[in-house]
Computed example of a mutant assay.
Amino acid sequence: MSKAPFFLILCLLAACASPAPQFLGASRHDITLDGIDFVVFLKDDRAEVVRMGYLRRAERARVPPLMIRVAEQVSGCTVAGPAGGLYRSPSLPGDTGEARFQLDC
């Protein structure tokens, strides 16, 4: 496969965000905060936040607090901590691409 079609497919996939199976049926909210695009999926008292786009390693440190802010801004609730149980994130702690939160409404 030549590099051009592969790059195009990669760009198209990078623009997509779909919820984890636990968040199917959740409401979707697109938001930009401090120049970073996020997609927030809200379901009951939980939120899944997906960061969109590419960031260099040096730019990623500011993302986890922004993920909390967008979850709170979109939901109108306070983030009580990471989502647990069935909604727990499979990502490693500190992942800047995806996070799941328990909300206190």
Rank of each mutant, 00 (worst) to 15 (best):
Q73P: 01
D95S: 12
I68H: 05
E59Y: 04
F23I: 09
E98S: 13
R56Y: 13
F38K: 02
L92P: 12
G84D: 11
S91Q: 14
R56D: 15
D44M: 07
L42E: 04
S18G: 14
V79R: 03
R28Q: 11
L33A: 13
L10V: 09
S75M: 05
F38R: 01
I68V: 15
L42W: 03
V63Q: 05
T32P: 00
K43H: 12
G35I: 11
R51H: 01
A26F: 04
T78Q: 15
A71Y: 04
R46K: 15
Q73D: 14
L8G: 07
R51G: 05
V50P: 00
Q73G: 08
A15T: 10
P19N: 03
F38E: 01
V70W: 02
A80N: 11
D104A: 15
G35W: 10
I68G: 02
E98P: 00
A17I: 01
L55F: 05
V74T: 10
G25C: 09
A99H: 03
S91E: 15
S89Q: 04
V74H: 00
P19I: 07
A58W: 14
L8S: 13
G84N: 09
L55D: 10
S91W: 05
A14H: 02
D30L: 11
S75K: 07
E72A: 07
R51S: 08
Q102I: 02
P93A: 09
R60V: 15
V39H: 02
D95F: 03
R56H: 15
L33D: 12
P21C: 03
A15L: 15
K3E: 15
V50C: 06
E72S: 05
S89C: 12
A14E: 11
V79L: 03
C11E: 11
E98Q: 12
S75T: 08
G85W: 08
R88L: 12
G76Y: 08
P90E: 05
Q102H: 11
Y87R: 07
E59W: 11
L13R: 07
L13H: 03
R46N: 12
I36G: 02
L42T: 06
G25Q: 03
G84R: 06
